[in-house]
Design a protein around this nucleic acid. Structure first.
Lengths: 150, 150
DNA sequence: TGTTATTATATGAAAAGGAATATTTTTAGG
DNA sequence: CCTAAAAATATTCCTTTTCATATAATAACA
């Protein structure tokens, strides 16, 4: 794909951040399509997935986890509240903080989404190969820990 | 980070697509910050970088390469035209197609950005390690080729 | 060749995101 | 305690993206 003369390489072909972004985008595209078919967008899915099994997260934590900025997360949470998928209440110890939890409807919704995500992941891992996947996971963890985010 | 009880793992902690997205986001964050400081946004940077050394791309090709959808790319190109960074003209063979090329100003702009990108990449590769980087690149190529996009 | 289908791009309205800043609450220092 | 600084979230305004669809050009084929 993307034909290119051998003697005049495009910059991006050797650019690691592009390769990372492309791999992420391509690998996610199919499942994100399914998320949308089910009536959610990727931001909503990320928040619901982040909450599953978490025991609740603050708005700021969700922003970091979901790779969004804080104002965007405030708005996403607000939309999810309106949809009845999450509940939001001020932290009793520190009333600046807002704790977000899955509602019962949210639990049901995310359980279905996660089931689909697991099925998709299984297919993806089969396509990549189990050993290669392990290698990939280790490499990605290293990228994260060495990119100044711990 | 993201404290978590060992006996109740969060779904996302074992979710490959999340790991990919997170690695991409975290690795890119610093440089994207620099892009913005220089007065560009990530979409603009991607288009300019995609054009560098390409000999021109159509709007549709740019959308695919830059991981955007087609209407968004039409608008990004329009903005870059208005900024004088790219030139746009109908393909003479197929007048549905619109060829996009860097202008002289665009060449100058992207050359500076690419220089900064290379410097950042060098630091990143040093942090990750050369051998580990090779492993990562190979694994990412495999993800792309096995994710139904060739 | 005329008609239908397909492909490439553009456009318009609505949704989401981003940057800057406001608001509220907590923390620190005198 | 009182005030200044810091932290967490919300809000505002503006830009960008998305979804659906329109427009224009080419391809396919009866």
């Amino acid at each position: 794909m993307f034909q290119q003369m051998a003697d005049s390489p495009r910059f991006i072909d050797g650019y690691l951040l592009y390769l990372l972004a492309r791999a992420s985008s391509v690998a996610s595209a199919e499942f994100h399509e399914e998320v949308r078919r089910r009536g959610y967008n990727v931001s909503n899915w990320r928040v619901l997935a982040a909450l599953k099994g978490s025991g609740g997260q603050t708005v700021g934590e969700l922003a970091t986890i979901c790779l969004a900025n804080q104002p965007a997360m405030s708005k996403t949470v607000e939309r999810l509240v309106r949809q009845g998928l999450v509940e939001r209440r001020a932290d009793s110890n520190d009333r600046r903080r807002v704790n977000v939890n899955l509602s019962e409807d949210g639990e049901r919704a995310v359980d279905e989404l996660i089931e689909a995500a697991r099925a998709h992941q299984q297919r993806l891992v089969e396509a990549i190969g189990a050993h290669e996947t392990e290698t990939l996971i280790a490499a990605l963890h290293r990228v994260i820990e060495r990119s100044g985010e711990g």
